[in-house]
Design a protein around this nucleic acid. Structure first.
Lengths: 218, 218
DNA sequence: GAATAATGAATGAGCATTCATTCATTATTC
DNA sequence: GAATAATGAATGAATGCTCATTCATTATTC
């Protein structure tokens, strides 16, 4: 006889499940920032989340999957931040590029906890194809966006000798490198200094669109 | 009664010991590149070195110490490379800066195995004060050298609006970021492209001393 | 033959994962 | 709509495996 109903879970349960998963992912971010990937145990994560030991395996099957989902969560979050920043920004390429650069040194992206987790994953990526693939995809997306904006600036500003792909790679590299400095030597550099260095880079490459900052905030 | 002799080990033994330690450190580099920090075990390292399981504890006391010594080994090696590059280079600041930038994208510094190990340590540094301290010290040394060279260029080229400290931080950041790209997306960027991006950066900042490359090697 | 280096089986701590059980929520029946 | 059944989320003690470290033994060097 036919099944009476396809029987889908009630909405409230689905929402609760998602909340739980996110709660565990946030605990994982805390733990990786505090103890590193090598040092975080299931007990650490579940304690940070104020839940019981078995809960991760219930929601993510394994520690590996939890970590993978954490990396995906961070990737999605960053992508959303970018999309929102671009939406809010003015319609010119220069305004959009400014918005992205500001975002990269804003507190919601550029705090030591999150940076630590990014670098923890990057540090393991060479030996973890799954991480590598996710990170490569993140790179590609960011580069495509920036390269497009660069093309517009080149047309608009009449620049010669600028290769958009190379520029995009360079800007992303500079940003990542500055993040590393913020992570390693927070006493010698802060978000504002890093942002200024980034904008100075834009200014020397696109002098018709950006000015050297000369800001010296602390 | 007096000790018969201060009893120093014969020279050949000291040398042998050092060789063994270096052999184990090199095996550690191989393993971290292949399996990551979280994934390398004592068994992995000793097998890679074709030695017995207990040998690391004999020579380094613990796994932690082995890893720390590995980071110190890489740091010393890089410092030596820099010193040699500076010695070989011509006497002008521009030549010295060129030598350093070439070094950073030369095969002996910039191969994926070593880069993977650097990033593995950077990724764990936030949660490991010892790593953090060593890395911060590396940063400081490099920045001091580059900032000094920048000061000379500023005087020589009559540049205004260049802050040597900020420039040094920016150059190091760009290099580290390009290394990350080489590690993550080796199909989309190679050493030569990375070097060109780096030299283009020098060219836009010190136009009287460096030319835009326009090289497009593969 | 003393001193030192190297081996690898044995040990046990630490940890991911399992699963029987409890508990709260949702569905069904009368 | 009260009573009962079914679902599935959550717990945490128990399990068993992985791995760093130890150390008695063997090999090598001086």
């Amino acid at each position: 006889m036919a099944q009476i109903e396809p029987k889908t879970a009630p909405n409230s349960r689905i929402v609760a499940k998602d909340r739980r998963r996110q709660q565990l992912i946030k605990a994982t971010i805390n733990c990786i920032a505090k103890r590193g990937i090598a040092g975080t145990t299931m007990a650490d994560v579940t304690q940070d989340a104020d839940l019981s030991l078995g809960i991760v395996n219930l929601h993510f099957q394994s520690k590996d999957k939890l970590f993978e989902e954490t990396l995906l969560y961070l990737s999605d979050e960053y992508e959303t931040f970018c999309a929102n920043a671009l939406k809010k920004a003015g319609h010119t390429a220069a305004e959009k590029l400014t918005a992205l650069a500001e975002l990269d040194f804003s507190p919601k992206v550029c705090d030591r906890k999150k940076l630590a987790v990014w670098f923890a994953f990057w540090g393991e990526a060479k030996s973890r194809p799954t991480y590598l693939q996710i990170c490569a995809e993140n790179d590609r997306k960011y580069n495509d966006v920036v390269a497009k904006l660069c093309e517009d600036l080149v047309v608009d500003g009449g620049y010669t000798d600028i290769r958009p792909q190379a520029f995009a790679i360079g800007l992303a590299a500079l940003t990542n490198g500055l993040w590393l400095d913020l992570l390693m030597t927070p006493n010698e550099i802060n978000r504002n200094m890093a942002r200024d260095i980034s904008f100075d880079y834009l200014a020397v490459i696109f002098p018709n669109h950006f000015n050297k900052s000369n800001r010296r905030e602390n």
